[in-house]
């Protein structure tokens, strides 16, 4: 199969002891390399849950998940950590940068957990990643010396530094104003144009318009899956 991602009947039920909360209900999805896909839906529809499973941060309750040809739904936590480290990049709504740590060191972070990369190589890769998001002049700046948009760009650089096969962004512009939102979305679009596969979670239509394909969730089920017709030009 040529798919980068194949989800088959993925179900996730949060077991809270007394109650079982169904978050995903038999989700089937295929994503190929080079796509820019927006996962849409109301709050509580299961977007983040789906994202976490695709991002190997969580195991599904049932179903099969293939990432880059690997069946990952049965892997243990160390094996999942290794996949996250080598193949995936995350961008979070709240940036999640380490405080009092320079942009460069923040971007280096994933490489600390990759034994094949020594410290000079690490630094060099981090610089390249920061160049990609146009922050070459901010290497030594700490998060509190950067604007929200710049912080998110550092976070994107961090997600790119390990050259992931997939970039996952969960509401990346949720904490940004409209001007910087455009700025960040353009960065993502550019990255997609240069070949990177991106999965974006958002509940805003405006933002989904930057993607090429939109998947809409409702109560843990995919209710719509279509190409974006009126895609925003950059």
């Amino acid at each position: 199969m040529g798919n980068l991602i194949t989800l088959r009947d993925i179900t996730k039920i949060y077991d809270l002891g007394s109650v079982k909360v169904p978050a995903l209900n038999e989700v089937n999805l295929e994503i190929s390399t080079g796509e820019f896909i927006a996962i849409m839906g109301a709050s509580g529809s299961g977007k983040s849950t789906l994202m976490n499973i695709i991002g190997c941060l969580d195991n599904p309750t049932s179903g099969e998940y293939y990432l880059d040809g690997i069946n990952v739904d049965k892997l243990n936590s160390d094996q999942l950590a290794n996949i996250r480290n080598k193949k995936l990049g995350f961008v979070f709504q709240s940036f999640n940068l380490l405080a009092r740590t320079s942009a460069l060191e923040n971007v280096e972070l994933p490489l600390f957990y990759n034994l094949e990369i020594n410290s000079s190589k690490r630094k060099q890769l981090a610089q390249v990643a920061l160049e990609m998001v146009n922050l070459s002049d901010r290497l030594d700046h700490q998060p509190n010396q950067l604007s929200g948009g710049q912080q998110q760009r550092v976070a994107i650089a961090r997600a790119l530094v390990n050259k992931p096969i997939l970039l996952l962004a969960d509401e990346p512009t949720g904490n940004l104003d409209s001007k910087t939102t455009v700025e960040i979305m353009k960065v993502l679009q550019e990255l997609n144009q240069s070949g990177r596969t991106i999965i974006l979670v958002t509940h805003e239509h405006d933002i989904s318009e930057y993607a090429k394909r939109v998947v809409e969730l409702k109560d843990g089920k995919i209710i719509k899956d279509h190409a974006m017709k009126n895609r925003r030009a950059d």
Partner: peptide, 10 residues
């Protein structure tokens, strides 16, 4: 959580 997300094992 972040360190784990970027590949830190337990």
């Amino acid at each position: 959580g972040l360190r784990m997300a970027v590949g830190a094992r337990k």
